[in-house]
Design a protein around this nucleic acid. Structure first.
Lengths: 239, 239
DNA sequence: GGTTACATGGTTATCATACAACACTGGTTT
DNA sequence: AAACCAGTGTTGTATGATAACCATGTAACC
């Protein structure tokens, strides 16, 4: 079977081309909110591709919230182009107020995550945490590797909650905090601090291993308090 | 009359299940950046679906930037999972697990936000909260207007914390939760519930006005517990 | 008349299979 | 040693078929 690929070949995947083509129709108002799209058959025919490709394109638009579809009826243009993304301006974080705010948010999530992790962790989760901590021991304090493994440890704690959104949000926030710290060049190295930080982590790990939610929460709070002062933040007591 | 419709499972598509499943593997670190995914054949077999479904799932993950793939080689986990934006797939929320997880995350943020709001609220904040609550009283229960003002009230609470990121995150999460509830068509109306809900809000408002963080936290917890049962979620107790 | 039950056609969701395009490997030829 | 080449595995695309579902019309029933 021969395709008519005059314009339609240079791109990556056919499905992305179809998706952006439909997307353009919507953006330019030729397809209005509530309108029904042509059937998959018709779309496949007009674009000269297989119905499979059309389906992949539609799946993509659906995940982007641009359209919705129902079995037996058809696909329709969504009423409201959803606000599907959340962004944080890294530059704005350079003001100490903003940084404090984000750090506070991170604290809330981390502390609660520690509690949930203590309650729900599996043996695998525990192993992952131990692994992360031991690799952290081998990284020189303040190095990029150190920060990376630090983040990794916190990620394993988040993973132990079993809540995928917890992981996602916490990773996102922590990443932003870390970027901001790196940007401000505010990490002064000392081997003593390495031991202190590792000790704090160990305490969290122990509490999670013992399934002691209270202790885990407290240990995480202490750790964040320590981390805050280490980056030159006077943290107000929370709770 | 009360139609007790059994958990309107407008089941999500198989492709979304597969996509969120793979997504979770990545988030939890079992699939690391650079790792090669199993072949489409293998994935289809392990998930018990057709290769076509797997392809739709991969197409979505690719559009989200989580993975990339090359013809003849395979699919790989992206090195840098978009660190600049945070997205939530609305379709994936149709699974009750995902919805519960997001609701849990929302709860954590709301409860802590209530505490902070009680401690830091200004007179202006208080006035905004009161205004939101009184407009809520005038909206018919279960209507779109009702949900909107409900969201607005919670937003004023978040605003009273003085933490801009708290507002941003909470709004984002709440919006997703609301969309998901709307999508499942799971709001059955009763005037009794309106009074109950308004009472719960009033309790939060009172605690914030009295600057009683403990009470505010407790009131918010109670409210979320009520809201959860109202949308048919059996909430587990959260310390 | 109004409601229920069934039949019909159309659409999406999924499955299964086949082929084309591309990447990698290893042996053969030059 | 370098170039060529065939074979195998993977993704990309095409095609046809089946199931689930929705909307509508029509006949049967009270």
């Amino acid at each position: 079977m021969m395709l008519k690929l005059d314009k339609v070949n240079r791109g990556p995947h056919l499905s992305t081309l179809v998706a952006s083509s439909i997307s353009r129709e919507i953006a330019q108002g030729r397809l209005r909110p509530g309108d029904q799209l042509p059937t998959e058959q018709q779309l496949a025919q007009t674009f000269g591709v297989s119905r499979n490709v059309v389906r992949e394109a539609i799946a993509r638009l659906r995940s982007e919230g641009r359209i919705w579809s129902q079995q037996g009826r058809g696909a329709f243009v969504a009423d409201q182009p959803n606000t599907t993304v959340l962004t944080i301006d890294i530059d704005a974080l350079q003001t100490s107020n903003a940084f404090e705010s984000l750090f506070e948010l991170r604290g809330i999530l981390e502390v609660q995550a520690a509690a949930f992790a203590a309650k729900r962790r599996t043996e695998d989760d525990l192993k992952a945490m131990k692994d992360a901590l031991s690799t952290m021991r081998m990284a020189p304090y303040g190095s990029v590797m150190w920060l990376k493994t630090d983040l990794e440890f916190h990620k394993t704690v988040a993973a132990a909650t079993g809540n995928p959104y917890m992981i996602q949000f916490l990773t996102f926030v922590s990443e932003k905090v870390r970027e901001s710290i790196l940007a401000s060049g505010n990490q002064q190295g000392s081997e003593d601090l390495a031991a202190v930080t590792l000790g704090e982590h160990q305490r969290i790990l122990d509490a999670v291993e013992a399934r002691d939610a209270e202790q885990a929460q407290e240990a995480m709070r202490a750790h964040l308090h320590g981390a805050a002062s280490r980056v030159g933040l006077a943290e107000q007591q929370s709770e």
